[in-house]
Amino acid sequence: MRGGAVTTGSLLERESSLGVILMLPGALLLMVFMAYPFFLGIWLSLTDSGIGRVGRFIGLQNFVDLLSDTIFHQTARNTLIYALVTVPFKCALGLGLALVLNNRMRFSNPVRAAVMMPWIVPTALSTLGWFMIFDPVFSPISWLLRHVGLISKNINFLGDPGLAIASVCWANIWRGTPFFGIIILAGLQAVPADLHEAAAIDGAGLWHRFLHVTVPHIKGVVLIAGLLSVIWTFADFQLIYVLTKGGPANQTHIFGTYAYQIGLSATEIGMGAAIALYMFPILSVFAVLLLIYLRREE
């Protein structure tokens, strides 16, 4: 392959230079609008800067201070719950969805588009819908359960300590399920039909076929989707911001919302940047896992 470069001498033909040239436009955008501000952000986290106030360099002081902040502990715990507990649910529900959609049926395109809705509409708007559904007084869920006699008091979806985090997780599962569904569906469609038929002829049952034909084929996509989902959920912001702003009593704060509260509302931008950067090592673990997996597949 390398020999191909010899034919013309131009930059565009030599693999090494062409590669760099092709990378350039995207890389440039990422450098200017992502890498540069990102390093500015790291610098901020090492200072006691406020908004509109250039701070002094204070080393790792912000990071150390956070270690003894009980709200930060709570935030870290919440984030782990939010990111790790929701993924198995999204995955299981997504798998079920994919298996259902993989059948031949009428209106399959509109149905697929419809079930994608939670994933594709603006979160800022759909979460407002959930905000209404979780309303402590006017929740339709409470109304229904009250009318069939299952409960006597309205459910305090976003106000009870355990329920609040469960409710935001629920909304997150709702939003993420279609993503898993569609990715796994893509995986299912890559399973050659004759494999199933061959297994069926051999007398393999449905479960057996699922386990030995389907699962090996979709293992990869599930893993990728899962890791991506953990990463995205970990760094989430909008959903919680609209529903609870981290309340009540910080029971739903995650890194993003806490960083926002300290960095923006309280203008302690250095500290806020430090909170956000605490995400980095944990996210990196998942990102490295993902990279290792992808590399191995190659």
Binding site: V137, F157, G159, A164, G247
Partner: peptide, 21 residues
């Protein structure tokens, strides 16, 4: 008190009051 108030924001009590709750 309505004990769901732990999750109320600035707008919840307006709605609850105006709907006579």
């Amino acid at each position: 008190y309505d004990e769901t108030g732990t999750s109320w924001d600035d707008s919840n009590n307006n709605r609850a009051y105006l709907s006579e709750q």
